[in-house]
Simulated assay, not measured.
Amino acid sequence: MTISGLNGFACRSHFALRLPIFHCVRKPRFGSVAAIETLDEPERIIDEKRHNLGGEVGRKYHKVPEWKKLNSKELGISTSMIARPTRKVLNGLRQRGYEVYLVGGCVRDLILKRIPKDFDIITSAELKEVARAFSRCEIVGKRFPICHVHVEGTIVEVSSFSTTGRKFSGDLSYDVQSPIDCDEKDYVRWRNCLQRDFTINGLMFDPYAKLVYDYMGGLEDIRKAKVKTMIPASTSFQDDCARILRAVRIAARLGFRFSRETAHFVKNFACTILRLDKGRLLMEMNYMLAYGSAEASLRLLWKFGLLEVLLPIQAAYFVHHGFRRRDKRTNMLLSLFSNLDKLLAPDRPCHSSLW
């Protein structure tokens, strides 16, 4: 099914626009936040001594939920749910004595009994050691390098604790209370989790110990069907504005909602996505529209003021037909994408030319 008028972005000149940040970011109006569907209050700030890090009394820290270590069987996860190429990479590193974990969205999807789009591995091995362990492996990326391991016609991404730890070259720009009574390995895992975008993507799964580590309340947010940034949303989206689009994609695909704080800054930082280059915007749009959740993605983009930034002609169509931001009705455009969604899935996407 070809959707005419939606082949690529509707207004190409729109992407050349790079407005200064003070033109795009509206001053927060907390009175407007109440109009957004939410599940919780903004994160509280506590004033106490930092645990295990020698912090000073009197400094303010963002409170971290009590961390959990759960048996994967209790969560319904078995190793048979892990793709065969991923198991080969895990076994190859484990046999050489390295610690290995599955991390990110794949752990979330396993808990939700969904088929992960891909599996990401993190290990205690250095990237050079990972490259030596496999015959077809290359290190890619300069700023945040990872390994691409080629197994059975697929690519398995492997990152290293030592490499990701370098992102914290100095003090954090925000203060977060560390987990209570954590040992050195817990501390390393916790610090890595802080670098991830959302709490539901901050879980780690050790398939050999059959344990799932949750340091930031990700399991509770999965239970509440909530998308919440790992660190304060304003800081998270300023650090990487692509997280705004990832938040929409995840919420649309899983049927989740944003936390109050996350929703507020998705809406008020909408124009900052114009910082992204055209290729990155196209990639993020393809993730939203080509993997079976296009209708839900369009509704969220419209609701939070992102559609007019990305697809202004489609946004104008919504305006012309009197489609309100929180409208539950459908229209021809949404119906077209709804029918497309029935043919697609995260492991069965369509080509971008279709939308």
Rank of each mutant, 00 (worst) to 15 (best):
E126K: 15
F119L: 06
S162M: 11
P116T: 00
E157T: 14
G202L: 06
V151L: 08
P145E: 04
F134A: 06
Q95L: 14
D183P: 02
P85N: 07
F205R: 02
T199F: 07
R136Q: 10
F144H: 11
G105K: 01
I139Y: 05
D181L: 15
P85K: 03
T163W: 08
F198T: 02
P85E: 06
V140D: 11
S124V: 13
G202N: 12
E129S: 10
C193E: 08
E138P: 02
L194R: 11
K128D: 15
I146G: 00
L75D: 02
G165L: 08
A131W: 08
R196T: 10
D109F: 02
D175A: 15
T199Y: 04
R196S: 02
G202T: 15
G141K: 09
S178M: 12
G165D: 12
G141Q: 06
L127D: 04
T79Q: 08
S78W: 05
D120S: 02
Y174P: 02
L90W: 00
C137R: 06
D171R: 11
R132F: 09
C137H: 07
D183L: 04
R191Y: 11
C137W: 07
C106I: 10
I200S: 03
V130G: 07
P116L: 02
D118R: 02
Y187M: 15
Q177S: 13
W190F: 15
R143C: 00
S160F: 11
D181G: 11
R96V: 08
S80D: 14
M81S: 06
Q195K: 13
P179L: 03
G104V: 02
K185T: 15
D120P: 00
F205V: 05
R132I: 02
E184L: 13
F161N: 03
P85G: 07
V140I: 15
V103T: 09
C193K: 03
D175Q: 14
K167I: 14
R132M: 13
I139P: 01
Y187L: 14
C147F: 01
V103Q: 09
I111P: 00
L194V: 12
I115S: 08
I77Y: 01
E99N: 13
G165C: 06
I77M: 04
I146W: 00
I146T: 07
S124T: 15
N192R: 12
A133V: 07
T123F: 08
N192H: 15
C193I: 05
I115T: 11
D118N: 09
I155E: 13
T79C: 10
D120T: 05
C106A: 13
C193F: 00
V103M: 13
S78I: 05
L110R: 08
L93M: 14
D181N: 15
A83K: 10
L90D: 01
S159K: 08
V149C: 07
R96D: 09
D175H: 14
E99T: 10
S169L: 00
E129I: 01
I180F: 12
T86F: 01
V158A: 07
H150K: 13
L110C: 06
R87C: 08
C106N: 04
D109C: 04
